[in-house]
């Protein structure tokens, strides 16, 4: 041991430790403050991402054939379930169309161009996932060239799954809702109950044991029930309103018994992502 920690080696180890901590804190600071990473990092990530797509191609081929078999086995049950849903969907779709038309007409009369609910969708493919337990993060194949900016919300299938955390030219990183870091999943959301009154709040955490989103610090006395829908409120930042987050599964008080806490079942399957949609809000705010 004495021999291992000779003077020179000890100095090298300590210098390495200091450099490591320094680099980590600098990159975290850059990540929190700037909208894009430094140019060299962006360029490197773009090049690495390009080759990633080439390597991913055969792997996805294998995966495709595996899922094809399992899909085939589930076809009958799925067909039954979908048939019952499709009746309802057709009606909703027509109704939705009528409402959209009415909405645009009314907006025109009020001379409103874009409201908080308007967004354009950018579709992207997930090309890699961070192999780490501490950052639930995926990498998608669209970047600033497709109009993606940092902090934009990301949807998959029926609901919100996370937000953009780093943007390069041709790829970007998405922090998932399940990320346990302190800044990852703070979304401004609102719950509308059966009688029509809304409660505003912020997503405060994720319970990975039960796969549930937690929403805390609610001081409103409005009654929230199981099954109420939770959606983004569009307040603050570049998040559009009306993106489905999930449904309420339980309500209660937080650990101190002061504010109430709502447990939400995510609408999208966060652990299984292949294609995602980035929602680009059209109405701009000054912040």
């Amino acid at each position: 041991m004495n021999k291992f920690f000779s003077n020179r080696r000890l100095v090298i180890v300590i210098v390495c430790l200091i450099v490591s901590f320094g680099l980590m804190s600098v990159s975290v600071a850059i990540r929190n403050k700037r909208s894009t990473p430094p140019l060299i990092q962006q360029f490197g990530n773009d090049v690495v991402g390009l080759v990633n797509r080439v390597v991913a191609w055969p792997v996805n081929g294998v995966k495709g054939s595996v899922t094809a078999v399992s899909d085939l086995l589930n076809t009958y049950q799925e067909n039954q379930r979908l048939k019952s849903q499709i009746q309802e969907l057709a009606q909703t779709k027509v109704h939705d169309q009528a409402l959209t038309q009415q909405n645009t007409k009314l907006k025109k009369e009020l001379k409103l161009s874009h409201t908080l609910t308007d967004y354009t969708a950018v579709n992207a493919t997930v090309i890699a996932r961070t192999p780490s337990s501490w950052q639930d993060q995926v990498i998608i194949d669209k970047g600033s060239a497709a109009g993606i900016k940092k902090n934009m919300p990301v949807l998959s299938g029926s609901g919100l799954v996370g937000r953009v955390s780093e943007v390069n030219r041709t790829n970007s990183k998405i922090e998932l809702l399940s990320n346990s870091s302190e800044s990852a999943n703070r979304f401004a959301v609102q719950i509308t109950n059966k009688s029509g009154s809304t409660v505003n709040g912020i997503v405060t955490g994720f319970d990975s044991n039960k796969n549930r989103i937690e929403m805390g610090n609610i001081t409103s006395k409005t009654k929230i029930e199981k099954g109420d829908k939770v959606m983004t409120s569009g307040l603050g930042g570049i998040m559009p309103a009306g993106l489905l987050v999930g449904t309420v599964t339980a309500t209660g008080t937080d650990n101190y018994g002061l504010a109430s806490k709502v447990t939400i079942k995510p609408a999208a399957d966060i652990s299984n992502l292949s294609y995602v949609t980035v929602a680009v809000r059209q109405s701009q705010t000054t912040n």
Partner: peptide, 18 residues
């Protein structure tokens, strides 16, 4: 590359919460 791609291709198997 396989490290990241396998995670993206088989998320159910590799990232089964918790």
């Amino acid at each position: 590359y396989l490290d990241g791609i396998l995670g993206a291709a088989f998320p159910k198997q590799l990232f089964n919460y918790p």
